[in-house]
Nucleic acid binder design. Structure first.
Lengths: 262, 262
DNA sequence: TAGTTCGTTCGAAATAGTCGAACGACCGAA
DNA sequence: TTCGGTCGTTCGACTATTTCGAACGAACTA
């Protein structure tokens, strides 16, 4: 084995980690062949082969057109994971409602391992078309350049935020992305005071968003509710004010519904 | 090892198969502890432990309240899997539309390994509330007792259907479920003639549904589009006729859109 | 037809997984 | 408080498993 064998923390099963890398490679490339995977993961063809076959036997991959792709089984597992989240269960109807009323893209985001995960989103009537919808839902995002992410960060203890920034950094996405640690902490302060996070074209040029945290009775943050709209729309102070009030109200209703259920 | 070591067909990685069983157990129980998993899978505590830890390290499980649960990562992978399906991409807007117009539950289903997978569904205005929605989306269903499933089976070659029936059987779900092989083949014939499948309370008592296959230019079936409604509603011949025409029309539009894209 | 590339199979070398015992932490009962 | 039970966790040793590379036929290209 190569020199730099890093300690993965606890003892782990290398074969399982390898399988996980296989799954990741299949997702990234949208399907792989045996030789291709062997090259990408730097293992022998026979190893790549047996991994793919094993995952296929277990229903996690399927062969389509001579390539191995992710099985729909993942969509079953994904639904299972989502549905355990009260934020998803109680938030989904509110997202539908908000998207309907505002006509804009509306999302629910939660945090996992320091990244934002888009649990659900709806494109409202006036929402711009394109690959935006499917692209976002497939993606784990950094938390510092989205309104949803910043809303979550603002509700997390300071040292947790520091930990996340250490781990994932603050890469720029547009010219407006916050890439400085101190600026970020100041921004989070502002968000706490104001009650909502504002994304000023920090992720996508021409797009702004408003994000509001959703908390449980113990004040742990479960995630956030957000609405994004063209910069043009958001530049109108009044519209923005109205919209933020609206999102805060919905987030609050979600919180109440979650609290009543437990 | 125990006596009955069956040949899994091709050579496979036992550690990966074990990991897959772990994931399945976690899903089934909605979260597990170390000892609990060890008992369920009949392995030592230390083995259960290292498997859970490895999957956690790889972002596939998370610890919540002293239990290991499925990570939202699965929801990312699931979206990825779904979005590769043209049936999903082109069918989703039509499902939304149909649910809106009919006010009933509307779904898109596809087949994988002889089972039906619910790719997307929407509860229309008049759709009954309850756990039905989330329950269905989490589930792989047998194909023989749903309208969507029968529509798919009717579009598959006869020997493929036989294979599926051999593998998964024809378990009864209600008194109306088709449990006899010959009856099923006759029904599939009827479906082909009629152009749509009808579920007459075969899955859930009080619920009927209409399912229509969606095929690609090569005449392979990609899945089906279906609408379910209370038995009361469906007993009205005229309503049923109108609805089936409507579903067939939408399915056809989906087909056309898919074909134009390739 | 010769030269690639692909996926697939196999035996043997080398690595990695499993077990069971043992520990400290935690919880509830006595 | 103290005891017995359970929990998750760690470790070394035995053993089973994974990995590799070579070799094959099929499919495709030149």
């Amino acid at each position: 084995m190569s020199a730099g064998d890093r300690d993965d923390g606890p003892r782990t099963l290398k074969t399982v980690t390898m399988a996980s890398r296989v799954i990741d490679a299949v997702r990234e490339r949208g399907g792989v062949g045996v030789s291709e995977l062997a090259t990408q993961l730097e293992v022998s063809k026979s190893t790549a082969y047996i991994h793919l076959k094993t995952l296929e036997e277990n229903g996690l991959l399927v062969q389509r057109d001579d390539r191995y792709e992710l099985a729909f089984e993942f969509s079953v597992l994904g639904e299972s994971a989502r549905n355990r989240s009260p934020l998803y269960r109680y938030g989904k109807p509110k997202v539908d409602e908000l998207a309907d009323e505002t006509g804009q893209y509306t999302h629910i985001v939660t945090e996992e391992n320091g990244r934002g995960i888009n649990l659900y989103q709806v494109k409202g009537e006036t929402g711009v078309d394109g690959d935006y919808q499917s692209a976002k839902l497939q993606q784990r995002d950094h938390l510092h350049y989205t309104a949803s992410g910043k809303a979550i960060l603002a509700s997390l203890p300071r040292d947790r935020v520091a930990e996340i920034v250490d781990r994932h950094g603050l890469p720029a996405q547009t010219a407006n992305t916050i890439t400085d640690r101190e600026t970020l902490f100041d921004e989070l302060e502002t968000i706490r005071d104001r009650g909502y996070a504002y994304n000023d074209e920090e992720e996508i040029e021409g797009f702004c968003a408003i994000g509001v945290p959703v908390r449980n009775p113990d004040d742990d943050v479960l995630g956030s509710l957000s609405v994004s709209a063209p910069a043009q729309f958001m530049r109108d102070e009044q519209a923005r004010e109205r919209l933020s009030e609206r999102v805060m109200r919905s987030a609050n209703v979600i919180e109440v519904n979650i609290n009543m259920s437990s």
